[in-house]
Design a binder for these strands. Structure first.
Lengths: 411, 411
DNA sequence: AATTACTTTTAAAATTATTTTAAAAACTTT
DNA sequence: AAAGTTTTTAAAATAATTTTAAAAGTAATT
């Protein structure tokens, strides 16, 4: 069964078998996302009668994929039997990379990590040695987990950069010329399906499945860290665009300045709103005589100032830090106004490590929206700060793998 | 059958009946969009075996919905029987409104108008009398068509303004306070389903079904006329946003100027790129001494200059008009660069009456993209000028009604 | 504590739908 | 004209789903 699902060999089978396979996948998916469901619950969701659901559940129980989870609530009548996934019928290996650090862990079908979350320094670039380190770290993670490779459903990789999920290529990082796509290299190394996705998109998946945007049809998720990434949930699905490059919010040309962006262009939003800019503004300001508790935090070695410190200082009452965040927030708000006019989302989730600035960003953002947004559009959109912790990316990558195997395939 | 489809009373029926109904709708939809298909073609598209398709087709033939259309091509073997919709099994009444003129006609199931296309002056506003005129014009159209009301599947309305399709409300026009939504008023008047949609979205549907964006998964359609409307086809479907307000490209804040936009804000793209601005620039320039053949076209009565004349003059070689369009195009291009970064579309279609400016707009747009767009994104997007004629809106509204009845319901 | 009413679950029968099989029909190519 | 293809249909076989009815389990009521 597992092999069948993993290799997806439903090729020249009959239509009926395809439909049955779909029903089975639906069942597993519902149980994965809602933990436990009764026979009737499943029937309602999948348009099946109780006997049909029973037959699917029984075969899944026989195969060790589903188990009974005790009885649920009833308001007068027999209590329904609840069914759930057997937590270790399969595992997903999740990897969350940023420019400097990589995190990874193996998760079971209850979304619980069965290995510790392993973090290590890894500078993302296009060198083969970086790839080799990544591979050996994955190998060692699998080894210490003592999980049989055949039980790992797939590997999910969240990465910054221009990622084309379908091709399995990251054009920005770990791109070694014209040979096989990055994803294929990993797939051949480990003999299991691999899915890569842009980090902001993964965060959007995480919010849409487990966070504040759970079940929301149209949501934008901003990942505010080195740059500003944008993940899009539109019509209930992740939106990737034609070549997987949608959501390049960081580089929309809306700034009137001479600064050249890392992408080579002028006028990118990123030149005025990223974490790098926060740190830069703080350094410059203090050098020009501004008073701030940041000085003390770095023992007057201003080069050590980082954006996260500014956020921390603001949260501790440092007025100059508040002021910097306010400037950044207002500029970001102007960018968000553009997003709201184009996407008219129900919800915007602010995520990434800069989101800890909370009201120091949200208030100036709202001020900018008051100025730049058509009221009718503004009224229809809520802006919230993510409640997912720093492992949101890992969770999102897990869900991404699950969806690729059980819901809708990209590749 | 028709009544069943129109009233969609598939409520407490069994799952099997629902699935059958879906197969029937799918069949009708494929025949609608592809004119004729063989038994095997349909089977391939709908995952059904020949006997299953036969039984559906036979019942549809018996009900007068489908008919045989002769035999198709075969490269060695029996020629397949082609099936198509009976053109007059149902009709759709389509209305395309802009700020000043309204067009309407009744179309059969082959997308051919069975009445002449009727155009009349109607200034869009929020007065009840405007509504009354619209209603009486629809009545008279139905009357001269001599079509039985029960054979009209529905009415499709394309309108400028902030349209919420689900609620059936246009917040900008024909909005009479707190009573019933506009759509309901029309529905009650004519006793048939009514669907309203923003004009740019309708144009996007038209391009996606019949135009250059046919079958394209991710396409943006710009309607360049009084303002600049944006219709979005994302993941193969029209994207409306949470409250139906997505695509407000006209009012994104990216301009540094003091001009107050019609929406009340400053800095809207519309203040620098709409047809109104084209006319304004032309008038101002000529008053300040620019030489142009436009002067002759209006007998020196500069107030009569309209954007369409500038386009015409440019097409006839007038250098000043070319220059104006070039300025507008470049600014529009900067806005399009933003769209490309956010949506990463496969295709951008330039439509609306200003699209006749063709290369006078596309060349400066490309210049702007060269400057403002990340090459990787630019490489993946084609920009083309619409080939639909001035009745594209009517066609789009027809397809919108069809899709609402046979494919996916919005309301 | 027993009864009633209600919900969930299962098993068997009945129904219905789909696929398979095989043959016939229609056509092209050799 | 014969051989080979493709489409189409009809009948038989198979498989799935629903219906029906009964059983099991629980809460509320008497």
């Amino acid at each position: 069964m597992l092999d069948r699902l993993r290799n997806e060999a439903i090729n020249n089978n009959s239509n009926v078998k395809i439909k049955q396979a779909i029903a089975v996948k639906h069942t597993i998916t519902r149980l994965y996302y809602e933990q436990t469901l009764s026979n009737l619950d499943l029937g309602r969701q999948l348009f099946m009668t109780p006997p049909s659901v029973t037959s699917i559940l029984n075969s899944l129980i026989k195969e060790g994929i589903v188990e009974m989870k005790g009885r649920g609530y009833s308001n007068g009548g027999r209590k329904p039997m609840l069914y759930g996934l057997v937590p270790d019928f399969g595992y997903i290996l999740s990897i969350d990379m940023d420019q400097y650090y990589t995190k990874m862990a193996i998760f079971n079908m209850h979304n619980i990590n069965v290995t510790p979350i392993k973090t290590f320094h890894l500078r993302l670039n296009n060198e083969r040695s970086t790839f080799d380190i990544l591979v050996s770290e994955i190998h060692s993670l699998i080894e210490i987990s003592t999980i049989d490779t055949s039980k790992i459903l797939g590997i999910g990789l969240s990465m910054p950069g221009f990622v084309n999920t379908q091709l399995g290529v990251n054009f920005t990082f770990l791109n070694f010329g014209n040979e096989k796509p990055f994803r294929t290299l990993i797939e051949e190394e480990f003999g299991m399906p691999v899915f890569i996705e842009n980090d902001a998109s993964v965060l959007a998946i995480a919010e849409n499945k487990f966070g504040l945007a759970k079940g929301v049809k149209n949501a934008l998720v901003l990942k505010m860290s080195w740059g500003v990434g944008l993940g899009l949930i539109l019509n209930g699905h992740l939106y990737r665009g034609h070549a997987g490059l949608a959501g390049e919010f960081s580089h929309i040309p809306i700034v009137d300045s001479e600064i050249i962006c890392s992408c080579g262009k002028q006028g990118c939003l990123e030149t005025e709103t990223s974490a790098l800019v926060v740190a830069k503004l703080a350094k410059e300001g203090i050098r020009n005589g501004k008073i701030s508790s940041l000085q003390g935090m770095v023992n007057d070695d201003l080069d050590k100032i980082e954006a996260e410190m500014v956020v921390k200082a603001a949260n501790m009452g440092d007025q100059y830090s508040v002021q910097i965040l306010s400037i950044i927030g207002y500029k970001l708000g102007k960018g968000i106004a553009i997003l709201m006019h184009l996407f008219n989302p129900e919800l915007i989730v602010l995520g990434g490590n800069m989101a800890k600035a909370n009201q120091f960003l949200t208030i100036p953002i709202q001020q900018a929206l008051n100025k730049y947004c058509i009221p009718l559009i503004q009224e229809n959109t809520r802006i919230v700060v993510s409640k997912l912790d720093e492992n949101g990316g890992l969770l999102g990558a897990v869900a991404m793998v699950f969806d690729n195997i059980f819901v809708e395939k990209v590749k």
